[in-house]
Design a binder for these strands. Sequence first.
DNA 1: TTGAAAGCGCTAACAA
DNA 2: TTGTTAGCGCTTTCAA
Lengths: 343, 343
Amino acid sequence: MKKTSLSDIAKALGVSKALVSLVLNDRGDEVGINKETQKKVVRMARKMNYKPNMVARGLRLGASKTIGLIIPNIANLFFARIARVIEDEAGKYDYRVMSVSSDENPEKETGLIKVLLERQIDGLILASSLKDRTEIMNLKRDRVPFVLIDRHFPQIKCNYVITDNYHAAYNVVTHLINQGFKKIGLLKITPAYLTPIKLRFEGYRDALHDHGIRFDKRLVKEIPFGGIKNVMEQSLTELLFKPVSADALFFLNNDLTIAGLGVISTLGLRIPQDVAIVSFDDLELFRLLYPPVTAVAQPWQEMAKEAVRILIKEIQSPGKNNNNKTQIMLPARLEVRKSCSKF
Amino acid sequence: MKKTSLSDIAKALGVSKALVSLVLNDRGDEVGINKETQKKVVRMARKMNYKPNMVARGLRLGASKTIGLIIPNIANLFFARIARVIEDEAGKYDYRVMSVSSDENPEKETGLIKVLLERQIDGLILASSLKDRTEIMNLKRDRVPFVLIDRHFPQIKCNYVITDNYHAAYNVVTHLINQGFKKIGLLKITPAYLTPIKLRFEGYRDALHDHGIRFDKRLVKEIPFGGIKNVMEQSLTELLFKPVSADALFFLNNDLTIAGLGVISTLGLRIPQDVAIVSFDDLELFRLLYPPVTAVAQPWQEMAKEAVRILIKEIQSPGKNNNNKTQIMLPARLEVRKSCSKF
DNA sequence: TTGAAAGCGCTAACAA
DNA sequence: TTGTTAGCGCTTTCAA
């Protein structure tokens, strides 16, 4: 059974495609089509189980009503929650979302951008892992509406919505210092060139400095995105025992925290007596761990909402405003729990 | 700057669209097009920053190379992980995934199916919340390739990949009974008509029966999908104190477990001394809770892989095999941890 | 109040 | 070895 198209209906009724199109798009009254005719069309459409072909419509109209979403990994709850909000918000404007995972891999991401553009997405939201800015510059040059989230490129004038990573990290480290911790290990995710990672690192470094603690590079570890499970044990062993002997750990994302907690548990260390813990990214279960894990709660909901709002606005204002880009930095909230209190 | 199309290239080169199309689809040699001409075309395409329009291509070919994915909620890690595997597997065949969240709401899901079909997806994977089977029957009637995952409809002959929910639940309850627990509370998610919920319930009921324990309906609670946080406290209070006094709780999905753990912690109850816990769905952090939470680890990876494999096979074998549907039931693994050991 | 025709960008069949 | 034509399903003129 073939799908029914506009012209099938038109033929069955002995009218023109144009008329059917008008009626089915609720423009019958506007154009002034006979009520009776309209009814006939609608009835026949239902009878023939007509489903409009949005692809054809999109081709004709030059708009797919689809936005692309590039994130490192949909199976990371931070991004999954963002994806969910983006889906809901975009849905309000009748946009659908095609989301893809880049695995923090710039080459893969470049390929995905191409794929999405070829599919004629109307706009793009990226939590980008790109190292190089040329790819983003190309988007600008090609006038593709896009919004960066979570990670941005300071040199590029474009829309973005990010967390205030610097101050969030600064506050974490200040809190730890105030609690009496002095040797604070930092666990970064690779690639370390990502702006959030860099800014969190700077917040860490400056907080130490401002409190008179000398920066010790042995306290900083990088864990590759693809090998967290394998590398974490080694890194923590180096951090937690002599000669480094960290007394607190600051994990820069939730994947790291989860893996780190596993290793600490395996090593039989107590939190916070043997080592204090803070996580960038908050998860519901952190509150229920023993002891509950102190975490930076990022404003993922606002971030996603704003991103969609900005993107849709830009999509719908073709051409103009091409030089007024929106840049938003949202504060994070530090959820202080027992994992970093000095007993 | 307008996007360049095939005919722009053709015009610039003084050749035909067809030729350009052939060359750019790597069919130049096959058809026997002059090497020099081919080079010219490729060079010009690059120079003009040509990007094929997959929407137009799809319209012409009658295939969008897109599959739809309907799940209850992408922000639930069980489904997020599945979505990730589906994305990866589909990508191997050059298919992209458009995923949407139904919120366990049949009306919303019906709308989403319509939206996806209108967008000309080539096939559909559903973790369906539908109550009624008519919608699924319509998919069959319209010859839409589809695969059900996680939830199936026993009366309908179609592709599905599910967990062996009955035996998984049976084993959980048997284990609890063997540990000496007798009053096992069951927390279902609403809608309770979903096959996994029903089958898990039956496994629970039969295990009780086979071990000579009388079924007590006061031990069974239903928590609405949209109101877990609000209702959980009330339900657990009823279950855990007199007159019911459950000594163990079996949560039928991870959202329930997380919420339940929160309430238990608030109530100041100890696990497993005051109440034992088992979760359907395993999360990494469950292992790290105090005590670690016993959980049913579902075969989400195999489920997603199989679903894609079956779907693509069906998409690529048009018409034929219309009556040989694949039905797979995968075993789950019970991860026994301390949360349900009789101290 | 309705219809005819053009065209979005692409590919396949057929011609030359 | 290359070109022409038709048409996928839709919307938008413009004409009747």
